[in-house]
């Protein structure tokens, strides 16, 4: 792996965001609207059901965490689409760049976007609803990392599918993460799911994160077990996602689709 090639692609995206106001806005726009909407809804609900004191924490915590996963995935797939939209893809892949370097550079871009969006959202939650997500503890950080990694894995699968099936698969760039939402137990515990979905949830790293988060709010104790399980699954996910990417790349080169992408 070569650092300068990763830096090159990272720079390309930093330049892009520095230069494009709409793209910069995009980092803040959705998180901000989500936060406003759900924040006020939860405030409203709490006003009428005072026996649910943790409701705001549950909902906002879940919301911020889910958004992190979503951003992480988008960070990968949107950056990839930028090169296709700019018809720059062949120039990049005609260089000595290796698949792993490409993927790592996308992860890097995704990380920066998450750090910015996450900071802004946490700040807003605190300003608007006096909700301090870090009261849940610095213990939350490993859970965030776990979600980011899952987001990367979903992002890599997404771009592989776009590579293979072309622009018609672009909708996936916006949708694949949502497929994971019901079984990630974001807004409710795994136990409310029917047995079949519960079985699936056991293989979704994010379900352990959201269970863990609720555990922290409820009992205040740190859910080691959940964390380990989510990281173990994450490792498998990212490995499989990367293998899938390499495999798709091979097929795409066989079918001569690299040049056709974006047409």
């Amino acid at each position: 792996m070569s650092l300068h090639r990763i830096i090159a692609l990272f720079m390309r995206h930093i330049y892009l965001y520095r230069r494009s106001l709409p793209r910069l806005m995009e980092i803040f726009y959705w998180p901000f609207l989500d936060l406003l909407l759900w924040g006020f809804i939860s405030l409203y609900l709490v006003r009428y059901r005072e026996n649910l004191p943790n409701f705001v924490a549950f909902l906002l915590g879940a919301l911020i965490l889910w958004d992190i996963l979503f951003r992480s995935q988008q960070g990968i797939s949107v950056s990839f689409l930028e090169d296709i939209w700019a018809r720059n893809f062949l120039n990049i892949f005609a260089s000595p760049l290796k698949p792993l370097e490409y993927v790592v550079s996308l992860m890097l871009v995704s990380s920066v976007k998450i750090i910015i969006a996450g900071t802004i959202m946490s700040l807003l939650a605190w300003l608007l609803y006096s909700f301090n997500i870090f009261l849940l503890g610095i213990s939350l950080l490993p859970f965030i990392l776990s979600l980011v990694i899952l987001g990367w894995a979903i992002g890599i699968i997404t771009i592989s599918l776009i590579l293979r099936f072309g622009q018609q698969a672009e909708v996936l760039a916006w949708g694949l993460a949502l497929l994971f939402q019901p079984v990630s137990a974001v807004f409710y515990p795994v136990s409310v799911l029917p047995p079949a979905l519960q079985a699936i949830a056991r293989f979704i790293p994010a379900s352990y994160v959201f269970e863990g988060m609720r555990g922290i709010i409820h009992t205040g104790s740190f859910p080691h077990h959940e964390l380990i399980q989510s990281f173990a699954l994450d490792t498998a996910y990212i490995g499989v996602a990367f293998l899938f990417f390499c495999l798709v790349m091979k097929t795409v080169k066989k079918r001569g689709l690299l040049a056709k992408i974006g047409e």
Binding site: H4, R5, I7, A8, L9, M11, R12, Y15, L16, R19, S20, R23, E82, D83, W85, A86, R87, N88, F89, L90, N91, I92, S95, P96, L97, A259
Partner: peptide, 20 residues
Amino acid sequence: YVSMPYSLTVKESLEVFAWL
């Protein structure tokens, strides 16, 4: 049929490839 990153300046886009 291939272009350079649209939103970058001439110099920036060459910089990216210089790094690459």
